[in-house]
């Protein structure tokens, strides 16, 4: 089943945020996804960011910079987003395994060029930002206060098929 995308955005304005920051290794002893929920981004140190704050609690979209999700292969990183209803990540670029894990879980890891991420980040001045995703048109619409911006993105046929199938297990099981 396809997941829901878009919604209120939170901004993590730094490159190279690694999976240890997204979900620390000490929680890898959990054997259910749900148990990870309270620990999202617990070790991320970033000005103005509070891992226990309302901004993160309300967010369903993460906007960030380059090489997001680098480091460990732990799928706990996408899972901690999944169980917190963050199904959409928008970044300048990703580490390979994290990106694949997102699509394998039927979630979206969207890549936008730096100037678009800059524009998205700038939109924060106008108020809280919400993002709408149109997968078929490959378009994002971001809105804050009375300001609205549109961006187009690329998604490969395979990644789209994974999102539509609800993930790689469903896709592979139907096919191999």
């Amino acid at each position: 089943m396809q997941k829901k995308f878009g919604g209120a955005a939170i901004f993590l304005d730094r490159s190279d945020i690694n999976t240890d920051e997204i979900i620390p290794a000490k929680y890898l002893t959990e054997v259910t996804k749900e148990a990870l929920k309270p620990y999202i981004l617990e070790d991320l140190k970033l000005d103005g960011f509070d891992p226990k704050g309302d901004d993160l609690k309300n967010a369903t979209v993460v906007v960030t910079r380059e090489n997001f999700g680098c480091g460990s292969s732990r799928e706990h990183a996408p899972w901690v987003f999944e169980v917190n209803d963050v199904h959409t990540v928008i970044a300048e670029s990703y580490a390979r395994i994290f990106r694949q894990n997102m699509f394998n879980c039927g979630m979206l890891a969207i890549e936008l060029p730096k100037q678009d991420i800059d524009a998205l980040m700038a939109l924060r001045q106008a108020g809280k930002v919400t993002v709408a995703v149109d997968l078929d048109a490959q378009k994002l619409t971001a809105q804050a206060g009375d300001q609205k911006k549109e961006f187009s993105f690329e998604i490969s046929q395979f990644d789209k098929a994974l999102v539509e199938a609800g993930g790689w297990v469903e896709f592979a099981d139907a096919r191999y």
Partner: peptide, 20 residues
């Protein structure tokens, strides 16, 4: 190659993995 748990799961079940 290192992979996530879903890739691993499909690897265990089907013996395949997707790559670009």
């Amino acid at each position: 190659a290192g992979v996530g748990t879903t890739d691993l799961e499909v690897g265990i079940l089907k013996g395949v993995c997707a790559f670009r």
